[in-house]
Design a protein around this nucleic acid. Structure first.
Length: 489
RNA sequence: GUCCCCAUCGUCUAGCGGUCCAGGACAUCGGCCUUUCACGCCGAAGACGGGGGUUCGAGUCCCCCUGGGGACGCCA
């Protein structure tokens, strides 16, 4: 058998939407697997029945696929280690719980959540780290049996061996060591019989043959426990790498911030998968190549050793840059679909969609901006921005009379020829020629200045394209409106 | 509260004792190009959090402070 040298995994719990932090973890794992021609596995950790939601299971899968992070093993791709949802692995867990209990490596604990909370509070008050006091560690068989018969439902705790030094080599942080005495006996099975994270997560990694686990720094202190657990179970442990978390632009935890951080939200706003991937891949990871890269290229350049150890801030300005790069690589037809998602289609005359895309594609970053241009070009004839108004007034009625005359005499199809003749007629050129035209045709002269809160507007689209797209009649109308504007002053 | 981790331009980062009066990218600003804008090209401004050490020499090593993050759950 030629087992893949590398198997990574992403193991989300479907208790909420995928956010930037989750997805970055998934991305790094996918990249690592791809880098080594290995397998990227997806496992759904839905052991918390109370908080897991089926729609999230669906959503996370489709979002992963949308991002191009297809798993080679997992739901819908059984490679013999399934089921890939923890809710379906009960029998597997039971067997290993039994092994642990039989070996005396775990024990039933009858302490109530309230007692436990009180104990923690007391320890904290006393300036000590909260740790399980070991109340039930020494219960006799008889007592355990009696309490269970009396109707009590115990949890199962892992008996942490004392006096041990746990060492492991973290893929991104280097050598780590922790004394086992700083770890309290922890729960591996809840009172309702379901497995707790420490247990099911570590066990499944071992059972599924996962070789490398890249996960959030928040799991760093879990690792020694899982290592101990795996050792007790006699199972191989994967190599762990703990990556720094992503924080909001102001440095605060992402989880405590509003704004778009869920993948769904970002997707709905129109961000492209490639933009997200390129942005995320560089958050906490240095790439030799600065430019936009495909998933494959990113994988080739990926190295856990290049992963940063300090929290990286998610700054949407950077994401917007990658969005522009991703947009530049998209085809017109795809972009039309993308623009239409924000309703740009509602304003467009039939058959104009691709011309519209070509006209504005370099001037938009989000579909909403495309919609705004569609409205501007096809639905808002006569709407003039104050600055456009000023430019029109300054150009003067004579300019627009000449512009209308030139429209009669010159070919309407040739924008260059048109502007050349207009230049001759008015004696204007460059800015003086184009700005009044732009003002009349789009009602905007410096859209960028209008960006404001939304940051939506970009610079104006190529005037020649606008001219062509609008067609002769609308162009005439807009020029006439500009003329009226001058005359009414 | 206790323990752990981290700390270079506004942001993402390079830097693994001298080759760093700290390099790149994004953003910003200026110029060139273009019969407008954008793109592109050129350029500017912009950082080693503070204090002690170690060393001939520290962004790079050690300590303290400060700041940030994380863990301490019958969440994952």
């Amino acid at each position: 058998m030629t087992a893949s040298p590398v198997k990574t995994r992403f193991a989300p719990s479907p208790t909420g939407e995928l956010h930037l932090g989750n997805v970055r973890t998934a991305l790094f794992n996918a990249l690592l697997a791809r880098r080594h021609g290995g397998v990227f596995l997806l496992r759904i950790e839905d052991t918390d029945a109370g908080r897991s939601r089926e729609p999230y299971v669906e959503a996370l899968q489709s979002e992963l696929q949308w991002l191009g992070l297809q798993w080679q093993e997992g739901p819908g791709a059984d490679a013999g280690h399934g089921p890939y949802r923890q809710s379906g692995r009960g029998p597997l867990y039971a067997r290993h719980f039994q092994a642990l209990e039989a070996a005396g490596l775990s024990y039933p604990c009858f302490c109530s959540p309230e007692t436990l909370a009180a104990a923690r509070a007391a320890q904290r008050r006393a300036g000590r780290p909260p740790r399980y006091p070991g109340t039930c560690a020494g219960l006799s068989q008889a007592e355990v049996r009696a309490r269970i018969e009396a109707g009590e439902r115990p949890t199962l705790r892992f008996r942490v061996p004392g006096g041990r030094q746990i060492r492991f080599e973290d893929l991104v942080r280097g050598p780590q060591h922790v004394g086992s005495d700083t770890i309290g006996d922890f729960i591996i099975r809840r009172a309702d019989g379901t497995p707790a994270f420490f247990f099911s997560n570590a066990l499944d990694d071992a059972l599924m043959g996962v070789t490398h686990v890249l996960r959030g720094e928040d799991h760093l202190t879990n690792t020694p426990r899982q290592l101990l657990l795996l050792e007790a179970l006699g199972l191989p442990a994967p190599r762990y790498g703990h990556i720094a978390m992503i924080v909001a632009a102001d440095g605060s935890p992402l989880s405590k911030r509003g704004g778009s951080r869920s993948v769904r939200e970002l997707r709905e706003r129109g961000f492209l998968p490639g933009a997200l991937i390129n942005h995320l891949a560089r958050l906490g990871h240095a790439y030799a190549h600065e430019g936009y890269q495909s998933l494959d290229e990113l994988a080739q350049g990926f190295d856990p050793g290049h992963l940063g150890r300090s929290p990286a801030r998610h700054d949407e300005t950077q994401l917007l840059h990658w969005q522009r790069e991703a947009l530049a690589r998209a085809g017109d037809a795809d972009l039309w679909e993308w623009m239409a998602s924000a309703g740009a289609g509602a304003y467009l005359p039939a058959g104009k969609s691709l011309d519209f895309v070509r006209t504005v594609r370099d001037n938009v970053r989000l579909p909403e901006e495309a919609r705004a241009w569609a409205a501007n070009l096809f639905a808002e004839t006569g709407r003039l921005d104050p600055r456009a108004r000023a430019v029109i007034a300054e150009a003067g009625a004579e300019f627009y009379r000449a512009a209308l005359r030139a429209l009669e005499t010159q070919g309407r199809d040739d924008f260059r020829a048109y502007t050349r003749s207009l230049q001759k007629a008015t004696g204007t050129k460059g800015r003086g020629l184009f700005m009044p035209l732009r003002a009349a045709l789009t009602g905007e002269v410096d859209p960028a200045a209008d960006a404001g809160e939304t940051g939506l507007w970009q610079h104006g689209p190529e005037l020649a394209w606008v001219w062509q797209l609008l067609g002769p009649e609308p162009v005439r109308r807009r020029l006439e409106l500009a003329l009226q504007e001058c005359e009414s002053n």
